[in-house]
Amino acid sequence: TIISLGPSVIQVTSKVAVLFITVQYNVTISANEGLSEESVVNHFHHGLKDVATIFFYMLVAIIIHAIIQEYVLDKINRKMHFSKTKHSKFNESGQLSAFYLFSFGWGTSILISENFLSNPVSLWDGYPHTLMPFQMKFYFISQMGYWLHALPEIYFQKTKKEDVPRQLVYISLYLVHIAGAYVLNLNRLALVLLVLHCFVELLFHVSRLVYFSNEKRQTG
């Protein structure tokens, strides 16, 4: 038996897929570049549809987490023969090192491309900043998607019961602050703070990995 799907069904599913995959709430702004030239700039604001997009990228984060775990961290663990305690901490620092490195690099590129570093007054001038460039909005959606993915990972990674409260507090603090800044249109200031914070956390977790690889490396 052959079942044919009509164009109306395909249109409905494609619209639903777009809601999850693409960044929502596009606003087109015309900008005059010269006397006769006019360019179109796309900016975005936030709304309830962002919840669907965040959910999708949470699933993407789970997949990436699994890939890093299986093809990188598990191979190192087998070579190093860590104890169960070190095994868990090494996995945690390995995953977070990759995330913080990516977040720091991406956030820094946004700060440079949007001239926030060369013109720091723009961080607060004209608040509330209800519109964001694509890169900035996608950055915040990815951040929230990542920290939401950390909740089911507590179960997938079989985290010890005594470590669960610490993990929940850790994840909740990130979600509350990032989502709060996003909803309250404090995205520019939050971006600067996230870049600084990611750099510090990156140093910490890389040092932790160095220490686990050889306890004699106390400098780490």
Rank of each mutant, 00 (worst) to 15 (best):
F90W: 02
S4E: 07
K137T: 00
T53P: 00
I2Y: 15
P152R: 01
N91S: 04
Y100I: 03
F20C: 09
L209K: 05
V195D: 04
N119M: 08
F44I: 03
L173W: 03
M58G: 12
F56N: 00
E70S: 10
V72M: 07
K160R: 13
L48P: 08
I10K: 12
R78H: 04
E38I: 11
L35H: 15
S97T: 14
C198S: 15
T108N: 10
L111D: 10
V192N: 11
L173M: 13
P165C: 15
S97I: 06
S207A: 07
S172Q: 04
I3C: 08
F134A: 00
A66P: 11
K75Y: 06
Y174T: 05
L59S: 10
F204L: 09
Y100L: 05
T53L: 03
S8R: 13
L209F: 02
I54M: 02
S14L: 14
L48S: 06
L73V: 04
T53C: 03
H129W: 07
D125H: 15
F199A: 12
Q11L: 10
V200E: 07
V40P: 00
Y211M: 07
Q69P: 05
K86A: 04
L209E: 07
N115P: 12
M80A: 05
H87S: 11
V9L: 09
Y182L: 00
S113V: 12
L59F: 05
K89Y: 04
H197E: 11
L151R: 01
F82P: 03
E201C: 11
K216R: 02
I2W: 10
A181K: 02
V72W: 04
M132W: 01
L194N: 14
V210T: 05
L203S: 10
L189Q: 15
Y25P: 08
N119F: 15
S172F: 03
Y100V: 04
Y71H: 12
F140I: 01
N185D: 10
H177F: 15
K89G: 09
E114D: 15
F212W: 06
E37G: 01
Y139W: 10
H205Q: 03
A52L: 06
V210F: 01
S103R: 11
E201P: 08
E201K: 14
V51P: 01
E201Y: 06
H149T: 03
F134Q: 02
K84E: 13
H46N: 14
H45S: 02
F82E: 01
I67T: 11
V176M: 12
V27N: 07
D74I: 02
V51A: 02
I2P: 15
K84Q: 08
S30P: 04
L191I: 12
H129F: 07
L111W: 11
I10Y: 07
A66H: 13
E114W: 09
Q135R: 08
Y170A: 08
F134E: 00
I3E: 06
L168R: 09
